[in-house]
């Protein structure tokens, strides 16, 4: 479904993503784990169109979407839940969801809104409250709901559990599990590696801008030296 081949992203003279290749198949939950500064967020931002790749190819459903602007990516079926959620805090919850569905025809937009409300019951009571007053967990649900409003073929998520209290982290992983059961295709960047591996089908480990390991999630989770791979202690691969 989503194919990334030899992708390179530079900021000025800085190469943050070096020759990365990975694949997300339809209906799969794939995760990308790795330490701070590994280039995970840059990779997602490039795939979503916020940054232009210097080399490489991104294809979605066999269509070449390399270097497309974010709004075009979204229309092609790729939605991103950004790091730190980035909900529009001056907006009401309802308006946040409506912005997410801005590319949909009006009638479809309202259908999707109803769908989101049933998927996230918490949001239902808060529909006309300003989104700035939501708690971290609610805001994360809103951010995911907002991205789903575009009915994407692939949903990209950047650090969904970042900055959440443990009980809310549980909620986020439950939600990822539910989305997976609903047949969604997800590509998730996450730092809580063990929890993520438990809900993912496959995983990639990224360090210093490169993919250093990949494989079925269960196999990586069981691997003895994951911690070392993850932090680069032995530089080995799993």
């Amino acid at each position: 479904m989503l194919d990334i081949e030899s992708l390179v992203t530079r900021y000025g003279t800085i190469t943050a993503v070096r020759d990365v290749g990975l694949t997300v198949r339809a209906g799969e939950v794939v995760c990308l784990i790795g330490p701070n500064g590994a280039g995970k967020t840059t990779l997602l931002a490039t795939v979503a169109g916020l940054l232009r790749p210097s080399a490489g190819r991104v294809t979605l459903d066999d269509a070449d979407v390399t270097g497309w602007a974010p709004d075009r990516m979204l229309r092609a079926g790729l939605a991103l839940v950004p790091e730190h959620r980035r909900i529009f805090s001056d907006f009401t919850v309802r308006e946040n969801l409506l912005v997410g569905g801005i590319t949909q025809p009006a009638s479809r937009r309202h259908e999707l809104l109803d769908e989101m409300v049933s998927l996230f019951p918490i949001l239902k009571e808060r529909l006309s409250a300003p989104a700035g007053y939501l708690s971290g967990g609610e805001a994360q649900q809103l951010a995911i709901g907002r991205a789903l409003m575009s009915d994407p073929a692939v949903l990209l998520m950047d650090e969904p559990s970042l900055g959440l209290a443990p009980v809310l982290v549980d909620q986020v992983f439950d939600l990822i599990g539910r989305l997976r059961e609903g047949g969604r295709t997800l590509f998730v960047v996450e730092q809580n590696a063990k929890r993520m591996l438990a809900v993912a089908d496959r995983a990639y480990v990224m360090r210093s801008g490169e993919i250093v390991a990949d494989g079925p999630a269960a196999q990586l989770a069981a691997s003895e030296d994951l911690f070392e791979t993850y932090l680069g202690q032995s530089g080995g691969t799993a």
Partner: peptide, 8 residues
């Protein structure tokens, strides 16, 4: 645990 999270 802090780095990798807990499995459950």
């Amino acid at each position: 645990t802090a780095y990798l999270g807990t499995a459950e």
